[in-house]
Design a protein around this nucleic acid. Structure first.
Lengths: 342, 342
DNA sequence: GTGAAAGCGCTAACAC
DNA sequence: GTGTTAGCGCTTTCAC
């Protein structure tokens, strides 16, 4: 069942059917009514492939992330999808599972489908495909992970350095100096920047960093757990610990619970990134919040703007936007006892 | 840049280019090599719209859910996506946000894109569009929410009744008889069945249900919280509470914490559906686990089977699959004190 | 092993 | 206000 079939049944030409479907004003109400009726009676549904082919564009946008299970990517998807839907764009979803091979395949698919734009958190951010999008005039917004491609595309990230600074300043204000940082992989931008932020903030506060308080946490729950185990074996334990990301903090919390270390009386705990149950734990965990859902919205805005401007959009310089973080104080950090008793 | 352009540059016909791209054996290695090279040099990317139009099929599958933020739909997506990817299918993602209007629009899009199949958790499960998929030969797998359409399509759900039975039996085995059920909306299949399951299990155990222990929880966190507030005001408080779904249980837990009710010494708490931090709370919460990710895989199998069989697939009768649940005992339920002291 | 040509379903320029 | 027609980029039959 196609437009020609409908045309025959309605006694008009296929061009008229097309006009009716696309709400072209230049069709008499009577003809339109007739056509619409025939369409309904026969359950005709427009063929998007033929339309897109003819129009040489699509109303689809690619969403590519490395891990669908990470709460952050979900929250972002939610904001992103909401904005895209409003503008009539649908989303082709790709999960790379942190595998560069899958990423390549996914990008190829997106390219073949001629998506109108792409939101991506790349695994292999120096991927050869990224430039292909540019060459084909498809705008890309990159999230979180920096690379050479940032010079050519819009880039959205959060203020990792400032965020860690907020935690450190807070802990220092409570009198802590023995602060441990459970950091993430240094080849990932967030891992690198948050550790850098720790160094800077400690320096700013004039506090020397103890090497043994710098503990890798791999940005995983297990990593955070093991990091705490090691930290607890130290002769001089830190009085405060910072989780490098949500999973790390969750693992750290669990370890402290398992080893029956009282939070915050024996050790203060704070984390980068909020997580679903953080506010309901005992004690509720103090964290740096980032605007997850909103980040998806902003990304959509950047992308949709470029898409709607078409060729002109290329004149817009690549934008790098750094979104602010927010310290959310709950009850997992406390004043140093030594200070209290002074 | 299309196949014709490549053909010219390589000094062959567009038919040959097509054959090379589709790995047709009947092309001399020499020609193939030449063509491949020209393709690479010019950054040619196949046009999926043209291909799909010509082939009259697509390698895309629709995934439609009412709430992207629900951990369950994410976990399911993860398993579903994994299976589909293996078979070369990509996913067009639709979020209806529990809005029938958005659902209609989303289904229309999916139809226009001629998806090869659809996985859907419908809001309006008596939607007129569902039949259109059937009429167009597009297989549909429905999840969780029953409707008339179940008679025509594959349907996947979990054993809600049996699951609640497992909790009740467990609580009864601990000596509880004053058990409260915080149930969900009765117009949703899971809400209805879990309450039904509660009735049946209590009857089976020969325990009369106290009306005031049946509390609506709306399947939301707030609902669970309020339900517990009301339960605590009762003259004769229940000794055990069951959360109707993950959100309800989370809210219930939070309320008990806020009101300083000791779990499990003052009240035992168990829930339907696991949730991310359940195992790390103090105490860890006993729940009914459902095979979330696996459910996505099974759904994919049902769908991919029908897709691959094409017309023949229609001969397969609609299947209703009920997946088993599993009781995961943690530490939020305890033996009744009266029994202990006996 | 390769090429010519038709046609998938649609839209839009042009003619009336 | 409506019809005729070309062509978007691809695959595939049929020749050779």
């Amino acid at each position: 069942m196609n437009q020609r079939d409908i045309a025959k049944l309605a006694g008009v030409s296929s061009a008229t059917v097309s006009r009716v479907i696309n709400k072209d004003k230049k069709v008499s109400p009577k003809t339109a009514k007739k056509v619409l009726q025939v369409i309904k009676e026969n359950g005709y549904v427009q063929n998007a492939m033929a339309r897109n082919l003819r129009m040489a564009n699509t109303k689809t946008i690619g969403y590519l992330v490395p891990d669908i299970k990470n709460p952050f990517f979900i929250a972002m998807l939610s904001g992103f999808q909401e904005m895209c839907f409003k503008q009539g764009y649908d989303i082709i979803f790709e999960n790379t599972a942190d595998d560069p091979e899958k990423e390549k395949k996914a990008l190829d698919t997106l390219l073949r489908y001629r998506v109108a734009g792409l939101l991506a958190v790349f695994v292999d951010s120096d991927n050869e495909y990224i430039d292909v999008f540019g060459n084909m005039g498809i705008p890309v917004v990159m999230i979180d992970r920096k690379s050479k491609a940032v010079q050519k595309n819009d880039y959205l990230m959060i203020d990792n350095i400032g965020g860690v600074g907020q935690i450190v300043d807070y802990l220092v204000s409570l009198g802590h100096t023995d602060i441990a940082m459970i950091y993430g992989p240094q080849e990932l931008t967030p891992g690198e920047e948050r550790l850098e932020g720790f160094h800077r903030a400690m320096k700013k506060n004039g506090i020397p960093i103890k090497e043994e308080y710098l503990m890798p946490g791999l940005f995983t729950e297990e990593g955070g757990y093991h990091a705490v185990q090691k930290l607890l074996q130290l002769k001089n334990r830190p009085t405060a610990m910072i989780g490098g990301n949500n999973l790390t903090t969750m693992g750290a919390y669990k370890a402290l619970v398992d080893y029956k270390i009282n939070i915050p009386d024996e050790v203060s705990l704070a984390g980068f990134d909020d997580f679903p149950f953080a506010a309901h734990l005992q004690p509720p965990v103090t964290v740096i919040k980032r605007p997850n859902t909103n980040m998806g919205r902003v990304a959509a805005e950047l992308l949709l703007e470029r898409i709607s401007k078409g060729e002109e959009g290329k004149d817009i310089q690549p934008r790098s936007i750094v979104m602010p973080t927010q310290l959310c104080i709950r009850k997992s950090c406390t004043q140093m006892k030594s200070l209290k008793t002074k």
